[in-house]
Design a protein around this nucleic acid. Structure first.
Length: 471
RNA sequence: GGUCCCAUCGUCUAGUGGCCCAGGACGUGGCCCUCUCAAGGCUAAAACACGGGUUCGACUCCCGUUGGGACCGCCA
């Protein structure tokens, strides 16, 4: 039997960081077992679902590389199937019509909650003989007894039917509800393993009852613990960016996100870094933990930085363009880009940071940090810049080695330390005191731009008057 | 309130009765390297929630307590 898993988000928002992990685990489990991974959109709530959200979810899934084998199926296109199943239940006497109004039930529920009683539907219409006019809903008739199942993550779970109310499966407007839809879909789509968040645990016995009433085999269940925010509350907008596309826009690499989330709740000994292939080969539901995990942005950042460092400059280049564009730089025809990325990989934790750090390479005019300029762009420095400029202008291949030699010669002639030369040059070229190594920076910047900047710096330094910038 | 789930460093986790006075990773501190900032190397501090059992022996098994969380919809 081929293993079939599914990810079934409701399109009421973007692909959430928590939902994406559920998707990831379902995906990994299917791939590990040479199974199929199905995508289904649970949009039975017409009011809260939107086409934009569906697009955003598909977008997020693709970006993360979670390719699905079948779907996306839309529940809104399968209403006939759900209604037919509800009719079957009605015919078999396993469901009944209910004329109670939602308002009335809502009041009863509130009253029960206040008294500290379980807010359960009293089953009033269950034995009702008459068929009054007006709209009615269809409820599943929960039989007496108890239901238990072996969760692949949490272990054996048992529920008394006394705690389960007769759930509505068809609303009074003839639309199906969630529990009916999942069961019908999972059954007819031959889903063998239902992997989802543990907020669905309480639904599971209801669904098992539905499978049985409908005569379908019951799939295996695996309930994943939730991801919480730093305050141990369920992850929400308050915890910062939570949609996967927001991470893309902030300069995260998709695999960093995948790797991070795989390790949140799952582990493989002490290993932290996994390629996608390793994840697939090593994943198992047995090694998924039972307890909820707290989302740690710092570690994600570390992983992202790790993957930036590991990536080739040429593969990062196209990704960086978008972030440069956002800062008003079009570097698409600039041949220096790979070399520039090479200088920034070690110190940019995100692509966004990298773009910001790369800005000085592209600007026509640089603005000097006032404090730095005051300290380093002195008349003495102007003299050194002139000598250096001459040296750099005469070297053959403009590479790091030749540049270092040029610096070496100036250093020994002037009898100064390298630092005393490097810092002023850094300010002259980048505008500030922080940058990649000075030789690699110069090499990446290119001869032309370097000499132009030095010439400008000589002018500024000779004057050594920054009163204009001072205001 | 009821039902259910969970519990190892601040965080993610290893650990399936002796290998553990508890290992790794992020973060934090220190040192080294060094042209700035990083990166890298070394190093330090940091945890088995509590109380009872079971056992020759419990982080590991059982019970209770406490603390977190989820669910209780004609939402999904």
């Amino acid at each position: 039997m081929t293993i079939r898993t599914r990810f079934a988000p409701s399109p009421t928002g973007y692909l959430h960081i928590g939902g994406a992990r559920t998707a990831l685990f379902s995906y990994l489990f299917a791939r590990k077992n040479q199974g199929k991974f199905i995508l289904r959109i649970e949009d039975t709530d017409a009011v809260r679902s939107s086409a934009e959200a569906i697009g955003a979810i598909l977008d997020g899934m693709r970006w993360l590389g979670l390719d699905w084998d079948e779907g996306p199926f839309l529940q809104s296109e399968r209403f006939d199937a759900y209604r037919a199943h509800a009719q079957t239940l009605l015919k078999r006497g396993l469901a009944y019509c209910c004329w109670c109004s939602p308002e009335e039930l809502d009041e009863k529920r509130k009253a029960a909650m206040e008294k500290g009683l379980p807010p359960k539907y009293d089953g009033r219409c269950r034995t009702r003989a008459d068929r009054p006019d007006g709209p009615f809903a269809v409820r599943f008739s929960v039989p007496p007894g108890a239901t238990s199942f072996d969760d692949m993550i949490k272990g054996t779970m048992a529920f008394n039917h006394g705690e389960i109310e007769d759930l509505v499966i068809l609303r009074s407007d003839n639309t199906p509800t969630y529990n009916l839809c999942v069961v019908v879909d999972d059954a007819t789509m031959d889903i063998t393993h239902v992997i989802r968040g543990d907020d669905h645990i309480a639904n599971t016995p209801k669904q098992i009852l539905l499978y049985r009433a409908l005569g379908y085999p019951v799939p295996a269940f695996a309930h994943l613990p939730m991801i919480l925010g730093a305050d141990k509350a369920r992850l929400s907008k308050r915890h910062g960016a939570t949609s996967v596309t927001a991470y893309r826009d902030s300069g995260y690499l998709p695999h960093a996100l995948v790797n991070y989330r795989a390790r949140l709740g799952w582990s493989y000994g002490d290993q932290e870094i996994f390629t996608k292939e390793e994840l697939i080969a090593k994943f198992s539901l047995e090694s998924v933990g039972k307890s909820p995990g707290i989302f740690n942005p710092e570690k994600l950042l570390w992983l992202n930085h790790h993957y930036i460092k590991e990536s080739e400059a040429t593969e990062l280049a196209p990704l960086l363009m978008a972030h440069l564009n956002a800062l008003g730089v079009d570097a698409s025809n600039d041949a220096r880009v790979p070399a520039i990325i090479g200088t920034l990989k070690e110190r940019a934790k995100t692509l966004k940071e990298m773009a910001e750090g790369a800005l000085f390479y592209f600007r026509d005019e640089i603005t000097f940090d006032e404090k730095a300029a005051r300290k380093f762009l002195t008349p003495e420095a102007a003299g050194v810049f002139a000598v250096l400029s001459e040296r750099l202008g005469s070297i053959g291949p403009f590479d790091e080695k030749a540049i270092e030699e040029a610096f070496g010669s100036v250093v020994s002639e002037k009898g100064v330390k390298l630092g005393a030369l490097a810092q002023p040059v850094r300010v002259a070229l980048t505008g500030g005191t922080v940058s990649p190594g000075i030789f690699e920076t110069i090499a990446a910047m290119g001869k032309e731009k370097t000499l132009k900047r030095l010439a400008e710096a000589i002018k500024v330094s000779s004057r050594h008057d920054f009163s204009i910038e001072k205001k």
